[in-house]
């Protein structure tokens, strides 16, 4: 299994490197986006105010987590999951289904883009800056909590995205749903408590950006109770299982675009 993924990734990196312009574009857009986000944060905080009980550097940790999610999106989610619709449209999903390999695994991990790397590094740096400016020293328990929360957040994002992409089996034309997802995800750049109460509920249960960025950041700072971590773990794993079942169910309706 690992061998297959290794081969997948080697070839897709080779394929990506055919287009060298992307490196420059990716790095400039990363710097631009982070600068823009920090600038917006700065606008919020310029009068010494606080955003939903979070100070500037704690918010920076949230931006860091968000940037890590961006890295995941750029390197794995976007290259793979945006292809599902194309596979269905062109009928090349046939080839995927005929391989003696789990089709969800193939569709989710077939490609990797090296251009997520700068975002990953930037995310880690932001988190460290935020932590050190707040003089937070993370203990062992926090480390375990934080890693669990971040992993759950990755699984959660993946599952939501995969479930949405799966709907294209029925509605081939809804590729834009990915754009809706990405644009709503932007809300995760800021702490959950900054939003009005009604939106907080939506952002926790309907579109769970709470578990995507706020809870992992709280885990790092040490303000998150263990029940939050547990909740995000349960939430993400159940969504992951749902994504698997949903894909299996959807395949029964696949009609294979014919010539």
């Amino acid at each position: 299994m690992l061998n297959i993924i290794y081969t997948f990734w080697i070839t897709s990196i080779a394929s990506e490197l055919e287009y060298r312009l992307n490196v420059i574009v990716e790095i400039i857009s990363l710097i631009g986006n982070i600068a823009g986000t920090i600038f917006t944060l700065f606008l919020f905080y310029q009068q010494g105010s606080n955003v939903g009980g979070w100070d500037f550097y704690s918010s920076l940790i949230i931006v860091g987590i968000y940037t890590l999610l961006e890295a995941l999106t750029i390197s794995i989610l976007h290259p793979n999951l945006s292809q599902i619709v194309k596979h269905i449209q062109d009928g090349t999903l046939d080839y995927v289904l005929l391989k003696p390999i789990n089709s969800q695994l193939w569709l989710s991990l077939r490609k990797i883009s090296p251009w997520g790397m700068p975002s990953f590094i930037a995310g880690v740096i932001l988190i460290f800056v935020g932590l050190s400016k707040n003089n937070i020293i993370i203990g062992n328990l926090e480390i375990i909590y934080a890693i669990t929360a971040i992993c759950s957040s990755f699984i959660l994002l993946y599952s939501i995205w995969f479930i949405l992409a799966t709907t294209s089996i029925w509605f081939v034309k809804v590729w834009n749903i990915n754009e809706v997802l990405r644009s709503t995800l932007v809300a995760g750049r800021y702490p959950l408590t900054a939003y009005p109460p009604s939106l907080r509920t939506i952002f926790t249960f309907v579109f769970p950006i709470a578990f995507l960025t706020t809870v992992p950041a709280q885990a790092l700072i040490g303000t998150s109770g263990h029940q939050n971590i547990l909740l995000s773990l349960v939430f993400s794993i159940s969504l992951f299982i749902i994504s698997i079942l949903f894909w299996k169910y959807a395949l029964r309706f696949y009609t294979s675009a014919s010539s």
Binding site: F44, S49, V180, T184, A194
Partner: peptide
């Protein structure tokens, strides 16, 4: 769907109104 994805100003609205600034 694309129109829905242009939600950013509304998200910003929610944030700006929630800030004690």
């Amino acid at each position: 769907l694309w129109a829905v994805s242009g939600l950013l100003p509304l998200i910003m609205l929610a944030l700006w109104t929630g800030i004690e600034n």
